[in-house]
Amino acid sequence: MLQASEPQARTTTFGGRPIGHDERVLTPRPWTEAQSLWARELLDTVPAGPVLEVCAGAGHIGLLAVAGTGRHLVQVDADLHACVWASRNARVWGVDSDIRHGAMAEALMPDERFALVIADPPYLPSDGVSEFPEDPLTAIDGGSDGLDLARECLTVIGRHLVRGGAALLQLRDEAQGRELAVDAAACGLSIDESRQFDGGAVLLLRRTTEG
């Protein structure tokens, strides 16, 4: 009987360091280094406290953001394979990261608060995922309008971001950000800035209510 072969481990350089992954995990996109570097800049301005990354995948964006800062990192992903790779990568990088497998809203304790939240949800509409057959479906399918998981990220950010903290939400483009303005406000958040990169967009969110 033929047996399925184990996925081959791959290495992608991200921020000058190796990130391990395989075909079951989304390959790190080079442009997302810009999100990591923006997050790192924000760490100089936000309160003391840990950093949260949801929809973390192989963990590269959060790892590059906090490496060398001494900040504790919590990384959450619903895919077990992604969590395994995120854990391995954290060890290689020497980053203190708490990897949690599960739905983002269920993986956090109600009283946990974070100075910075990084959110990297899938954002393609379901009817467009066939254009990317090499990518794991769970890492790119954002539901009918591409924003199902992004809305979940807003809910988590609204619940767990400290007053004076900041959050960075990755999207396909700035147009998606405009679509989320009402959802963000309903979660007690404002969109302070958006940046379009060659590959995606990132929103900067801050609290408008007490956290």
Rank of each mutant, 00 (worst) to 15 (best):
L189Y: 11
A78Q: 14
L63T: 06
C187E: 14
V84I: 11
V162Q: 11
A90P: 00
A48H: 15
G68I: 08
P7W: 03
G142F: 00
L108C: 06
G16T: 08
T32D: 01
G62N: 09
D148K: 09
A119T: 11
P30C: 06
L203E: 03
E112Q: 13
L180G: 05
A184K: 06
L154G: 01
A9V: 11
A4R: 12
P110D: 08
H60V: 09
R159G: 00
T155D: 05
V92H: 02
E53Q: 15
C153D: 12
L205T: 14
G20A: 02
L26W: 12
W85L: 12
A4G: 07
R195N: 02
A78T: 14
H81R: 15
A34K: 11
T208M: 03
C55Q: 00
V84S: 09
R207F: 05
I157D: 01
T32E: 01
F14N: 04
G142Y: 00
E23K: 15
R29E: 03
Q196G: 11
Q170G: 01
R178N: 11
Q8C: 03
R206Y: 04
A184N: 05
D77A: 05
Q176F: 10
P122V: 08
R207Q: 07
A107E: 01
S87L: 10
W93L: 10
F132L: 14
H60Y: 02
A184S: 05
P121E: 03
D22L: 14
T11S: 15
L154C: 10
G57V: 13
I191W: 04
